[in-house]
Structure formats: C-alpha cells, structure tokens
Amino acid sequence: MKVLVDSALCVGHGRCYVLGPEVFREDERGRCWIDSHQVPRELEDQARLGEANCPENAIRLETQ
C-alpha cells in the first residue's frame, strides 16, 4: 500500500497522527508529514484510519 498526503489541503486537524501514529507524523505546526510513501502491511490499518478521518480529504491510499 502507498500513502500520499496533499500538504496543500492539510490544515492540521491531526486526526491522522492520532489514529495512525506510526504512519503519520506531526510537524511543528501540527500538520501531517510522512517519512515514507510505502506502508508496511502491519500498518495498513493505521493508514486506512488516517484516510477515513481526514476532514480535508488530504490523504490518498493506493493499493498495489
């Protein structure tokens, strides 16, 4: 699974890094960043939760 974050849409609701802390990180302003687009199989649920709870629709998942 691949995860993509549109940083132009993120406004820092912070749902992703609360629900998926091993996939999504919090920057100084409380916005989301990721250190890898590739999601290990064991973290796919966290990635899905982040996507499903982002009010800005800023997170996209791609399943290979």
């Binding site: 406004v11 609701h13 912070g14 939760l49 499903a52 709870n53 982002c54 009010p55 800005e56």
Partner: peptide, 20 residues
C-alpha cells in the same frame, strides 16, 4: 465509528485553532 470526518471544529483555513 471507523470513518468520521466531522466538521465540529470547522475545516479549511479557519479550522479551530484550539481543537487540540
């Protein structure tokens, strides 16, 4: 609830500053 994109704190540029 697995999918909850509620906007009780608003959204966009004015997303509630104090939401956290």
């Amino acid at each position: 609830r697995k999918r909850n994109r509620h906007i009780a704190f608003g959204a966009g540029a004015h997303r509630c500053l104090g939401s956290h």
